[in-house]
Design a protein around this nucleic acid. Sequence first.
DNA 1: GGCGGCATGTAAGTTGTTACATGATTAA
DNA 2: TTAATCATGTAACAACTTACATGCCGCC
Lengths: 199, 199
Amino acid sequence: MAGGKTRYVILGLLTEGPLSGYEIKRRIDLRFQFFWSESYGQLYPELKQLTHLGLLTTTDTLPDTLPGSRNPGSGRRSVRYAITEAGRDALRSWLSEPVEKEGIRLELLLKMYFSREAPPETMQAHLHTFVQSHRAQFLLLDRFHEELTRIPDPDGNHGDILQVIEFGRMSNTAYLAWAEQAMAYLSQRGTIPQHSTIP
Amino acid sequence: MAGGKTRYVILGLLTEGPLSGYEIKRRIDLRFQFFWSESYGQLYPELKQLTHLGLLTTTDTLPDTLPGSRNPGSGRRSVRYAITEAGRDALRSWLSEPVEKEGIRLELLLKMYFSREAPPETMQAHLHTFVQSHRAQFLLLDRFHEELTRIPDPDGNHGDILQVIEFGRMSNTAYLAWAEQAMAYLSQRGTIPQHSTIP
DNA sequence: GGCGGCATGTAAGTTGTTACATGATTAA
DNA sequence: TTAATCATGTAACAACTTACATGCCGCC
């Protein structure tokens, strides 16, 4: 009973307006990248099930349904999903339920913990990759933030999302600061051999 | 091919000395609590398999094998596992492989993102729980740190572990700082209704 | 005599990933 | 014409959790 959150990610995203499965995936990859992920193998079956449960409705955009299209008979097929009132209820009910225990798994820390078994260069390389990917995350965060500010927000609904971005920024900052420290430690450890023999 | 890390957690932990399955579980729960978790359902079958592969050896401590025991025939049964040279090789080889992409899933942020669908009190309650659990994590981190300093470390091998603890402290600090900010935001959002009507 | 901690294990079920299959459209 | 992106979907597999079953030991 730990999983099954895919459902609420979908429902939540659709409160912003109707989307296709592909678009949902893209939003998750771009916006949620630093705290969530979903695969098509989860997404599509769940969309089907949610529709079956009446929490979503579908509007199948067929090739020729686009009026005034330059090239008739064109236009990619796509299934757009929209949330129903029942779907909104399900989302709200989930929102009020307590957050389940988070099960984080950071392989980097596992390797750091056991790294006395390996030369310092190994961990330095891992940390380097870590730093790179978290620096890249900052850029994605900025891009998302920019995107958000370009969308008008009369009722101040963007505040919650801004908080999420803030989380990304703050945790990333901490991760990078730590990585720098750890790098310094490793280069120092590297110069000191097993047991210092004073000549 | 994403998982299968359980193996290396076991192998790594056993570099510190022989342990029973139960002790391994306990160490993971106490020391790795903020970045890793394992269940018995993973642990025991993996121990069996690793032994089968020759990466571990077992020493079954049977009730009457304790010499000089006050009460003969007593002593709990426990299977102690020790790492072999092949096991060490496997661990070292894994250490040198690149860290796989981390798949974090923070339900709290998901809820924060969609929280405009719920009253501010909901998120405030979730954040409260979040703060509590991360404050508790600090205590566990301190306990572990203390435990570590009590163990003599002639060759300076504890440095790597200290870095892991440092990660825990720094990220926790960031999480708590963020939570405070988010709390402040929510109480302010709470006082402002949908659209401010100036009388 | 019962509870909590020590200790080992399994079976069933759920969740999630990967790889594959398919095919249209657009731009180089 | 070929690669990239859009787009939907499934089957097989791997990983992981939960709940259960079992039993000893020491303490209150």
